[in-house]
Nucleic acid binder design. Sequence first.
RNA 1: GGGCGUUUAGCUCAGUUGGCUAGAGCACUGCCCUUACAAGGCAGGGGUCGGCGGUUCGAGUCCGUCAACGCCCACCA
Length: 842
Amino acid sequence: MMRTVPDKPALEGIEAKWMERWESEGTYRFDRSRSREEIFAIDTPPPTVSGSLHMGSVFGYVQTDAIARYQRMKGMEVFYPMGWDDNGLPTERRVQNYYGVRCDPTLHYDPGFTPPEEAPEPPMSVSRRNFIELCHGLTAEDEKVFENLWRTLGLSVDWAQSYATIDEHCQRTSQKAFLGNLERGEAYSQEAPVLWDVDFKSAVAQAELEDRERPGSYHRIAFHRSDGEPVYIETTRPELICACVALVAHPDDVRYQPLLGSTVTSPLFGVDLPVMAHELADPEKGSGIAMICTWGDTTDVTWWREFDLPTRAVLQQSGRLQEDTPEWIDSETGRVAYEQIAGLYPGQAQRKMAEMLAESGDLDGEPRPITHPVKFFEKGDRPLEIISSRQWYIRNGGRDEDLRQALLARGVELDWIPDFMGVRYKHWVEGLNGDWLISRQRFFGVSVPVWYPIDAGGELDFEHPILPDQAELPVDPTTDAPPGYEESRRGIPGGFAGDPDVMDTWATSSLTPQIAGHWDDDTDLFARVFPMDLRPQGPEIIRTWLFSTLLRSHYEHGVLPWAHASINGWILDADRKKMSKSRGNVVTPIPLIEEHGAEAIRYWACNGRPGTDTAVDFGVMKIGRRLALKILNAARFVLRFADDVDPAAITEPLDRSMLASLSEVVAESTAAFEKYDYTRAIETVEKSFWTWTDDYLELVKARAYDGGAAGASAHAALQLALGTYLRLFAPFLPFVTEEVWSWWQEGSVHRAPWPSVAELETHAGDPAVFAVTSEVLTAVRRAKSDARASMAAEVASVAVVAGSESLALIRQAEADLKAAARAAEMSYSEGEFSIESVLAEA
RNA sequence: GGGCGUUUAGCUCAGUUGGCUAGAGCACUGCCCUUACAAGGCAGGGGUCGGCGGUUCGAGUCCGUCAACGCCCACCA
């Protein structure tokens, strides 16, 4: 092959060049003819495309790519698809803000609709179908931005395998899996209290909650015993007194023991309430006795369940108190009081209640401001309320000890990288307190694929849902008629009603192995890639994505979805603060790539260990760029000599010694990669490479220029080493290694075989020759540096004092050493190691 | 309140089953245009390994404890 080494090698332009070449040559195309044992399958996280690009996106994906590239060179066929998570609330929210629209499912589809140039204020209402079309359009744009980023970074994904969680294939997979869960009794619907976001008007799941510290006020309020004596409770939610069903105190609390089993009446409303005893009532909190409402918090739900208390729900899905006076408030004064707060939001109602209670004398003192944790939907802006509603659930072990134990066992079976991440999974599963709520009262998602019969009285029969035919999937029950019904029977007695809900994003993305592997329509492919090898992901979604994927696989296939889970760390800014939009310290990757180059960004990412928080560090990126440049320049030197080299010509002890060291590096790097320890791998290779360029290249330079048999040995050794280093660096620095490889080798370095000890060992000698020779060279350099002389300064003599074994090693490389040190004479004597260099007169 | 992780040079980090004077890069200092590389090279200074206590012939490495920071979880009266 013609060798084409540029005169002035540069990094500029090579990224774009190889990005295109890899695509056109199908370098990373997956070959599905290979058997399962020959395939390495990766369950890539589908990024939320409506989210912003940030360094966290870059970090984990590059690390995974390094592993993928290693596996590919090792000879595995790598199944490395990319998905986009476009389904769900984040997209809806982005579309609402971007176009200034809101979805109103009661409107009819407008085929000619185009959104206004400027987002209108207030937002305009559009039909469900128009809204969904806007979602599809915007996510398609967002996906292009992400794909461009991934390509720029050099991710070796097979773009032919891409999927999007809202596409038809994903919807079909998601609905099929749901119907399987339903058939086996793993999914069910139930009318129950749920955590409700009043802005999104949707239920949310336990995994999507977060606590936020919020200001509140303790109101000390009198309830009344039958003898007229007050019983004071302290509450932050006086507006829920109208929904109170009981009071509760600790059974051992002597203050309230006399009250247990008696009845008190609520202030203003005059409702009779029993006083109960429960261990969860904390004598230290407030006055030690609390009111139970339906429902102010999750403890209320617990008490309500355990005591089988009546349901007195007043909060509506809108977040307002209901307009009509509840029937349990049956006194005239009670009704008058309720009318004051009817239809208000909780905050307004609370202020009104405080006024009314002060007036009636039931408020003791002023409300006392406090700060307390309040449950929020992680993407929400207002506190969650608890309301009663019918929702779909998948059993997850939260209410079934056997299942919980089985899922904990799966967590133990999984290989966690790093190990301690398994603990997070364990604690999450142990802490589950309810089944997984998967239905959402939203629009841009996969429909819950069921309909309900409507009886003659107009009531929906939720116990006997009508299911679709498999062949019809995916279905949208809000527009499609169920099997055996005409569309005209929708919503009428004796007809049917479609379930209006969609499934949560996680209900679909928990099936990424099944989606990517085409479980529903390509059993041959699925058998070749499933169970997968690796799930790389962030730590914050262990409780969601990892857990739910494991659960679905456990149900559907009875196995772990993958053998290994690699959890990356957090990205921190220079001040070691976690990056977040609210802090305003997010660093976006595109400008960084433009400034430092993709290789530099990759180098930074590959130096972040799994599970270890990593700071964005421009210094590290700079080093990566320097390394890439060094590879170019070193290669230019190596390849300036003979075109045809013969490895059999490698006879010089120094050359054979260098190759022996390199062989150790190959072994160490391979062992590290086998343990998914890519940082160890790059570290080992990099350290060795710098020694190679700084010492070995300097030592053999003169001999290489001189030629002859000794020169031929150097030429061959240099090329053998270069070819090895390029392959060792290829997983990390794919562009520069490919560029140099193309100067003198056929094919892609990324499809070249991973270096082996076997290919080097026949040319390897004693690694100590190179090591000790380097030491002597360093000592001579130090002498020159101390003398403030140029490294090119002539040295009259170098006196080496060392042990006899070391002396013997050094003598083997004497000629190289003299040339590199510019030394006229070398002398040797036995003793404590020391080097004495006498510089020649200037 | 519970759990996990981190704490090593000014900065970012290595330090693999406990073993010679604790390492790298950046930054800093000095020298050097040496025909692969000046967006470079060579050399150098710099740390009582968060505190305390313990095990051991020997501890950055193991155990206990405390502290700071980060993250996760927790029943919000």
